[in-house]
Design a protein around this nucleic acid. Sequence first.
DNA 1: TGCATTTTATTTGTCGACAAGAAATCGACA
DNA 2: TGTCGATTTCTTGTCGACAAATAAAATGCA
Lengths: 234, 234
Amino acid sequence: MAEVSDEVFSERKRGSGVKLVYEMLRDEILTLALAPGKPIDEVHLAERFGMSRTPIREALVRLAGEGLVETLPNRSAIVANIDFSKLHTFFDAITLMYRVTTRLAGQYHQPEDLKVIRAHQARYAAAVAAQDPLAMIAVNRDFHAAIAEAGRNPYYTALTLRLLDEGRRILRLYYQSFNDRLPQEYSDEHNAIIAAIEARDTDLCDRLAREHADQIVRQIRQFFGRDMRQDVPL
Amino acid sequence: MAEVSDEVFSERKRGSGVKLVYEMLRDEILTLALAPGKPIDEVHLAERFGMSRTPIREALVRLAGEGLVETLPNRSAIVANIDFSKLHTFFDAITLMYRVTTRLAGQYHQPEDLKVIRAHQARYAAAVAAQDPLAMIAVNRDFHAAIAEAGRNPYYTALTLRLLDEGRRILRLYYQSFNDRLPQEYSDEHNAIIAAIEARDTDLCDRLAREHADQIVRQIRQFFGRDMRQDVPL
DNA sequence: TGCATTTTATTTGTCGACAAGAAATCGACA
DNA sequence: TGTCGATTTCTTGTCGACAAATAAAATGCA
């Protein structure tokens, strides 16, 4: 078990403890630094972050609320497992959310939204050019999150964020195992989506978002389809 | 401020405390027994439920995760406000979720799903016949939640549940102020939806769900539109 | 040796207490 | 009398400790 070096933070501000633990654990879960199914020991974390169990506990409860950790009564919480048998529901949902949020972004976006979206896309292109999967995955999430924000429907935004986060783990698994080079196409599709949003062509937004989602889903489904067949012994 | 009688529960099982507080607070929030914006005092709740602040706190964190309470740093948590300025995003989202989940229910439902759905619909019809708005509102939520479950997409189900809960507060406000009699139409529409699901006619499911949502939205929007104009002084 | 049972150990759930931060109260001063 | 500042009060955020519940180890027995 890889043991991280002691991270003792001295004299934090009151109330910053939970946020720190929450964000750090969240990032470690989404980058697969913490493997799905791994037990999470509260006292261990308390020692690692140099604080009491109380704020650790609150962070875990929050993460459990987002479905990132699973808690069993009187037993250790564990990093949420990825349910491959329900992967198709994930693909369904994220395709719909890509479509809806991009469409709404085309309808409701304001000038400064586009600046934010473009900034993320620039970072995305840079990550692809640098062949940095981890950065690409994180920025991809930020890119679509910014589009969802521009659509200005908090309910859609919330679900989209949840799906994008789950997607980070799936994409990480994908690029980790496959070790494929990062394709340029997605970056081009992002640019086309930006153009459609700026032109306020909602139907085009919808179509491009759907095609974008379909392409990613097709590629990943193909990979995991192979992988899952391997998991079934005969 | 109406003070509830002391509810001291003796010798609860370990771990049941948070669940109790969570469910009770949740219900009081959704039935508007606790007014939106009302501050929530932890020690007060601790005394009321006869337990320490720790489980109360955990319940509040969970409710905050669902958007039912809002927490401010070093300040009292408050019952989440209903943002009337974003009501249209709520209508948008619940209409889409009605359509998607009902369509999926038509596609993926199993025999026992229909039994559950029908049972809820029977309770719904009874509540309408008895002109009991509170029961009708709660059962309406259960009815559509059961349909979402039958659709077997946990992401859609989660968003639908959140919207249905928020809808409970809005409907309560509606029937509380308007004091309208409960219409029979919704019950008939529910029966039509059940028939479409059973027939596995996904397109009909979609259309009926949309019409069902549109009708409710139209009625409520009309009411709140009036009400909101009153809030704007000239 | 293999299995059931008791004992130990580990980890969570809850508690009471204390300190920090913000709101409310009080008081000084113009 | 009104305003600004200090003080008090009130509420939350965090801590350390203890007990319940589960898991692991040890023991007894066939």
